[in-house]
Design a protein around this nucleic acid. Structure first.
Lengths: 196, 196
DNA sequence: ATGGCCATGCGACATTTTGTCGCAGTTGTG
DNA sequence: CACAACTGCGACAAAATGTCGCATGGCCAT
């Protein structure tokens, strides 16, 4: 197991000398700018980083050389990063995967963890949080329980996400079940969930 | 594995004859009224139900006879239901646990699943949804038939009522907590209890 | 390949529902 | 009494939703 600890005071680039000791990290996110920023941040933290923007490429790279760590975005263009989590885990159960998303929901978080993700974080997120997420192997029952209930908007979002995942992400079916217009559901899904 | 399938048309009480065949279910929630309602609903669905309102009692019962199924509330008075999930799993890894909470969050959902919970649901929920949750082992695969989830309108209504009650029916306070305009809350409350 | 069926993304426009202000009436408290 | 907080409600602009419609794309059986 490579050393993961790090200081907030980052080491200068020239202090990273032994490439062969660096843990490998595969980043999959369709947002290229985000990928670039994240890649740089993780490189600074000692990883040997590779970037891909879709499932196909990610699998190709992973099959060529399975990464020890992976950061997967939940919403790749049209596909779901969840399938990638499953496949990466199949390739190597030891891979530590952090799922990232700007559309976080309890429902998808549950799926991600069940499929083997090490952690699930909502964007925006910084590199340090991702580092911490990689380190958390098992559940820690000390997670504080939120004191305030969700806003109605958030509750609705969570509910919709749940029904949606229960129905294989079929928007039309979900809209029918929820007795809501498909167009409306589309619009709701397009928005990001508000905090709390 | 006990039979979990069920019809929406519930069997009459006198149709349940073979007690020994009933799967055992342990419910842990500090809300006694909720426990009662849920216990009745689950009994109807063929479970041999036991109720406890705190971790201590729950462990005592579980150690005496480990339940096959469990419904654990995340927020027990001052303790966290998460530790209970951990212990129940330790007692018997085969136990299927559904975590329930009125204060859902992605963070606690992640912890719950990592600790071994089978699923994590936000209140309000109905018994059928819990049944479905017990059935959903992993990824997703099937979703036989979504019984009849509440419409988003109905969900919102139930939720608002709960928060309202928790706050002594104070509309202003509730509106603030829910991050919603008081005027809007007023208008929602003025409408009917909603169909579905 | 061709047509039927369904899911999806999205533009456009009429309706509804919210967000906001503001004001008056009530109630509880120092 | 003065003050603070809750409540009900009117009015109007802003935002969300219901509806239609159309084009694209995947599947499947003919």
């Amino acid at each position: 197991m490579p050393e993961l600890r790090y200081n907030n005071t980052l080491p200068a680039y020239d202090m990273i000398e032994d490439i062969s000791e660096q843990p490998t990290l595969l980043i999959i996110d369709d947002d290229k700018i985000f990928c670039g920023v994240l890649a740089k941040a993780m490189t600074k933290r000692g990883f040997s980083v590779e970037i891909t923007h879709n499932i196909e490429d990610a699998l190709a790279k992973a099959e060529a050389a399975t990464p020890e760590y992976a950061i997967v975005d939940l919403k790749l263009d049209s596909e779901s990063g969840l399938v990638l989590v499953e496949k990466l885990k199949a390739l190597d159960p030891g891979t530590r995967i952090v799922m990232l998303t700007g559309y976080a929901s309890v429902a998808t978080a549950v799926e991600a963890i069940k499929l083997g993700a090490t952690h699930y974080l909502a964007k925006p997120v910084d590199a340090d949080e991702i580092m911490a997420a990689f380190d958390r192997i098992s559940g820690e029952a000390d997670t504080p329980i939120s004191a305030s209930p969700l806003s109605v908007g958030r509750l609705e979002w969570e509910y919709i996400q749940r029904i949606l995942t229960e129905n294989d992400n079929n928007i039309s079916v979900t809209a029918r079940i929820l007795n809501m217009h498909r167009r409306t559901l589309q619009r709701k899904l397009a928005k990001k969930p508000h905090r709390n």
